[in-house]
Design a protein around this nucleic acid. Structure first.
Lengths: 207, 207
DNA sequence: TTGAAAGTTGAACCATTATTCAACTTAGAA
DNA sequence: TTCTAAGTTGAATAATGGTTCAACTTTCAA
């Protein structure tokens, strides 16, 4: 779970100015992702984070203003990484349905490798509601765009709305939780395949 | 949002023994649902609950062992009520698809009337993980049963698995959040209709 | 009517933990 | 090498809020 943290995680005037400082901040960030992921926001403690990071308690405040600020930064970072990871995976697709399948498979793989995303993003509903909402609204918007492209390209039927995007997102999130986090009894590609056939042709019996 | 709290909410030896006691406990329970729904578990305070209920701080502990125990009871109660409400709504259906449509519509209506369910059940992921998991596992199991019945009856295609139930549940939960809690720009029946057509025939273009 | 059980009250207790800070150490430019 | 800025340290601070409890009031069965 090595990590690249992007710029939005930096707070105004707390940037490290030396190599040593940079290294310490990185350690704190990685430790925080683990601590929050394992215990959740409230159970997690700054002490726990600094212990994991192997630094003194006070060092935390050299780089972050507060526990909330750090959590918030982590949420935005997670959200961005999910997005990036999925985008990177949707290459080489024949049609819009194939693309959705790749998106789900990539998401599930990512979730398995970063089991902390669910706890962190889910808990944002309570700790940083604005980020929580943005995360899902933006994700739905991206799916909706793909649906529209799919309709134009003639792969998908017309009349698809924003709500269809939300339905697909919900499917993906719950499948990720059940078969990515809670158990790995089925592979991402199996689940993606199965969800994709539901998406393509539904579950009604042909008559 | 008047409420009937079921038995599992009672703790061992803290049952009220008089009419007055019963009334006080009821006030506390209703106040707690509001307080937790509005603020979430950690922001909610016993003081806040007793103030809403119009009782003294100490009275809380006449009926509950702890904040956690109360929350846990509330989660189980919410879960049971969602289940009951949905079950009550699935009458008069022609086929399995129609039944799923009614289930979603009922769920969305219920969510609008009890906007606290999302906050309470979602936060159970952190406060009472076992109940959180049970809630979704049991819900999925009920959906899966209906799918199997639908297959047997010839309404639905074969080969439907537990994962299909999870996909449907995810759809429902996210549609409920977006169009039940966050905004009411579309009616439950519109959303249910739209989701149902996705479920029935998918979104691929016929060729 | 009466007394014991049930219920009410809110101040006090206490544990937890985020945050501060002043003394100390290290890095690295000059 | 030297000196200042950057970084480190962890004990002390402070605020919060869950929980306890002993005094008080109400209920209701006998």
């Amino acid at each position: 779970m090595a990590t690249e943290y992007s710029e939005h995680i930096e707070s105004k005037d707390k940037q490290p100015r030396t190599a040593r400082g940079l290294k310490t901040k990185r350690k704190l960030l990685d430790a925080a992702a683990l601590e929050f992921g394992e215990k959740g926001f409230h159970e997690a403690s700054i002490t726990g984070i600094t212990q994991r990071a192997g630094t003194a308690l006070g060092s935390f405040y050299t780089y972050f203003d507060s526990k909330d600020e750090l959590f918030s930064a982590l949420v935005k970072d997670m959200s961005a990484r999910v997005k990036t990871h999925a985008a990177g995976a949707m290459t080489e697709w024949q049609d819009a349905l194939e693309r959705e399948k790749q998106a789900l498979e990539a998401f599930m793989t990512f979730a398995r490798e970063h089991k902390e995303i669910y706890r962190i993003i889910d808990e944002a509903e309570f700790v940083d509601p604005a980020s929580y909402r943005s995360h899902y609204e933006e994700t739905a918007a991206r799916i909706y765009e793909r649906l529209q492209e799919g309709s134009s390209a003639g792969d998908l039927r017309g009349g698809l709305e924003e709500a269809h995007a939300w339905a697909i997102m919900g499917m993906n999130v719950f499948l990720g939780l059940r078969y990515g986090i809670w158990s790995e009894e089925k592979s991402p590609s199996e689940i993606a395949e199965l969800a994709n056939s539901l998406l393509a042709k539904g579950i009604a019996k042909k008559r």
